[in-house]
Design a protein around this nucleic acid. Structure first.
Lengths: 133, 133
DNA sequence: CTATCTGTTATATAACAAATATAACAGATG
DNA sequence: CATCTGTTATATTTGTTATATAACAGATAG
């Protein structure tokens, strides 16, 4: 799986890395049980510091997306994902975005459709990647 | 309109303030043309620094949500809002969130419905506020 | 056992962002 | 003139981000 980091972007590097791995899992590019690169290896590949990768991995572990083992390294977590309080978490993330959409004239149906389309887009990343091996 | 700031939260104060004002506009609590409190007044009311409020106001101005005048102060912008590149902006915000939803087992229809419901919730804030004057 | 891999922890440093404090300026208003 | 508005400038403090170097504990292969 290809990781692309925008060093000029607004988001912190560890946050970009975290997002891309979550997207990779959602798209199916990273499957449950699949072993991720070690912090040293991935840091060298991307060209960033070990601790930055470690911070992203630790964050993903705390969120339940990956499991980490001292011996075998990091791996994508097997289902199911702990979902206590996830609705509230999701609502907190989406509320300001929904407000933006409202201010720009999108009604509930349009916004819901836009979100559903994006859901499909994320799932389709896998197919796009497999077309260009 | 009541502003609630979480000093222990992860989000910067100016960002929280910006989000709440956008939500207020979306909910209809702040209507186009309505005058906002001055930076000094709002800073004193909330108990934060003038520059923090100024940063939030300047951000809202750059995004087109409010207009600022040296004489009369800040006011909610009249429609329409400039929407060039808004879809891309919205997609960038939603992509990692959609990925999270996928990882937690929500399909496209469920995610779209959740987003549409939240859209309604934001619009309903106005009615809730008016019940308790 | 040795060498090498893994995550983990510690410490130090530099750069940047966030928030505060104080002060001043230009323009408009009563 | 006094008072309000946004705006700008400077300085300081604090926290985050990212880097660098180093070491430790546990597991594994030679």
């Amino acid at each position: 799986m290809i990781i692309q980091i925008d060093f000029a972007g607004d988001l912190p590097l560890y946050s970009q890395l975290r997002d891309q791995i979550v997207i990779g899992i959602a798209a199916g590019l990273l499957q449950p049980g699949e072993v991720l690169p070690s912090v040293r290896r991935l840091a060298a590949d991307i060209g960033i510091n070990i601790h930055t990768v470690n911070k992203a991995y630790a964050l993903l572990r705390d969120e339940g997306y990956i499991v980490m083992d001292r011996r075998s390294g990091a791996a994508v977590a097997g289902r199911p994902l702990d979902s206590r309080g996830f609705s509230e978490h999701l609502a907190d993330l989406l509320r300001p975005i929904a407000a933006e959409a409202i201010c720009h004239g999108l009604d509930a149906a349009q916004f819901g459709q836009f979100c559903a389309d994006l859901h499909h887009q994320v799932r389709a990343i896998r197919d796009i990647q497999e077309e260009h091996p």
